[in-house]
Design a protein around this nucleic acid. Structure first.
Length: 505
RNA sequence: GGCGCUUUCGUCUAGCGGCUAGGACACAUGCCUCUCACGCAUGGAACACGGGUUCGAUUCCCGUAGGCGCUACCA
């Protein structure tokens, strides 16, 4: 087989918001494509008209835009292999289904859903396969005339794949190695539905991956059981020589308890499971998103990348470029990974520390405005710079930690405990002295204050910092006192000191 | 029920026959220090179980148990 250009795809169904597990699958595909100089395709698998949700497709595109994951071709990105929306490929599928029918590798079945339900109720573990298909109503059990007359009289029918029993089918998985399943346990899957005149996932998937020249299929582990069916389909079409390689990713599990990660877990434990806020058009329900919750996209990607893969070194913080360089699909873990959202928050904290104040400022400015505070961008940047190394995971956590920059302590109350510890009978007098030292300064910069105050400290032996903090902040938090005073300015600093002397005596 | 995948600290994981089983999150303690933090240091904490193979198994094989997934005219 000739070396082919690497082409991978992410192919979600537009049935709602994009689940965070889907984001990880897309990320792994993206990393794989980029590190091989390949192409990344965005395909919409909307073959189930019943589950179509308006707005979902746009939501998914917007999500990847925010995350910084780019597609080379696909829905809304163009390309030579379109259309990329399966609902627009009906004629293509029809042709290939006919090919299978003509070759005797698929057959027509007239059994109605009701009849199938009855069969399943009747027979324990009923499966539509080689052992049962002759008792059903299909083109294998019926005569040609009967089939023709049923079709002519307008009976609905599906097309089923004719699985030959007793054969070991091997799927080579890049993560798990060879997985062998005997074809006898496979059922004659419906390839083409009667209801909406569209193929099922299995058929559409194989036809599209072939036509779009996909070389590697990287998808969730839930597809592993049907992978042998897919291999059989490639064979039936005679496409085995260009069949893509497979990699089935381990699933994301609940942070606690049993089962896979669900939207409910996010609601229950208080973390988002969707990249962006999602407004469900049917229920009207609103679900939180990583973007709106204050996560940086880089942090989300870094966190997700390490849920099931790691570079084999002790490095955890990685840019997207580094991930592309270091990623190795064969080194992915095989077992499901509990979704440790607390670690996700830690990644966000690390990325906040890494970011420039300038980049962080707009987000904090938004928080300030929401709290009725108007400040210049320079001020906002300065506060972010002084406060970002505090105990915060999100920019929004900053506000309760540094409201004192904008609201004087007398307007909300001093913290009793901190005051008792740091303010006694002699403190007022010390603070008066400190106010004197500070008011003598023309230059109120950090350096100038430090020079003056430390000179005074040296000669008097006073320790003014904590009482000073009481006066300016009201409690035991905040940045360096010189920085804080410099930010507040001479006038406000002196005003707060005098106010504290007046109130606390 | 059937089939498949899977199993190292609470969690994410490193390990690819011989290690005091390493790192990170979380937690605790200490140092630093004008507060809170940041940073640094330290600590507790794991090879599911039973058989093999081998001089020697966390590592290879087979069972058992647990976990996860699939078992639709959904993807």
């Amino acid at each position: 087989m000739a070396e082919r250009k690497v082409r991978v795809r992410f192919a979600p169904s537009p049935t709602g918001a994009l689940h965070i597990g889907g984001v990880r699958t897309a990320l792994y595909n993206y990393l794989f494509a980029r590190q091989h100089g390949g192409e990344f395709i965005f395909r919409i698998e909307d073959t189930d008209s019943n589950r179509f949700v308006p707005g979902a497709e746009e939501y998914i595109i917007e999500s990847f835009k925010w995350l910084g994951i780019h597609f080379d071709e696909g829905v809304s990105f163009g390309g030579e292999h379109g259309p990329y929306r399966q609902s627009e490929r009906r004629d293509i599928y029809k042709k290939y289904v006919q090919q299978l029918l003509d070759a005797g590798k698929a057959y027509i079945a007239f059994d109605t859903p009701e009849e199938l339900d009855a069969k399943r109720a009747d027979i324990q573990n009923f499966q539509y396969d080689a052992s049962t298909r002759l008792m059903m109503r299909n083109s294998l059990s019926l005569s040609q005339e009967e089939v023709k007359s049923l079709i002519d009289s307008g009976h609905q029918y599906v097309v089923r794949f004719k699985i030959e029993p007793g054969e070991d089918v091997c799927v080579h998985d890049m993560i798990r190695g060879d997985v062998v399943i005997n074809s006898s346990i496979l059922d004659d899957k419906v390839l083409y539905k009667s209801a909406d005149e569209l193929p099922t996932y299995h058929l559409a998937n194989i036809v599209d991956d072939h036509l779009m020249e996909v070389t590697h299929v990287i998808r969730g582990e839930e597809w592993l059981p049907s992978a042998p069916l897919h291999v059989l389909l490639y064979r039936a079409f005679g496409w085995e020589d260009t069949m893509p390689s497979f990699a089935h990713l381990p699933l994301l599990l609940k942070p606690d308890g049993k089962g896979k990660l669900s939207k409910r877990d996010g609601d229950r434990l208080g973390f988002p499971v969707f990249p962006l806020e999602w407004h469900d058009p049917k229920s009207g329900e609103v679900s939180s998103g990583y973007r709106e919750s204050g996560y940086l996209p880089e942090a989300v990607l870094n966190f997700l990348a390490l849920l099931g893969w790691n570079p084999g070194t002790e490095q955890e913080i990685m840019s997207l470029d580094e991930m592309i360089r270091l990623f190795d699909i064969t080194k992915c873990s095989k077992a499901g990974a509990r979704f440790d959202y607390v670690k996700g928050m830690w990644f966000n904290k690390e990325y906040i520390l890494l970011k420039d104040n300038k980049e962080l400022a707009p987000a904090f400015d938004e928080i300030l405005r929401a709290n009725g505070i108007g400040a210049s961008m320079e001020q906002v940047e300065a506060v972010v710079g002084m406060m970002k190394m505090k105990k915060i995971n999100f920019i929004k956590d900053l506000w309760p930690l540094c409201d004192f920059f904008f609201i004087a302590p007398e307007n909300y109350t001093y913290d009793d405990k901190f005051v008792r510890k740091n303010w006694n009978e002699t403190t007022s007098a010390d603070m008066k002295e400190l106010a004197g030292v500070l008011s003598a300064l023309d230059d109120f910069s950090v350096e100038s204050q430090q020079k003056a105050v430390e000179k005074w400290v040296e000669t008097t032996g006073k320790k003014p910092w904590n009482p000073w903090r009481v006066a300016l902040v009201g409690t035991g938090k905040g940045p360096d006192m010189y920085e804080l005073s410099a930010f507040l300015g001479k006038e406000e600093t002196l005003r707060r000191i005098n106010k504290a002397i007046e109130i606390l005596k």
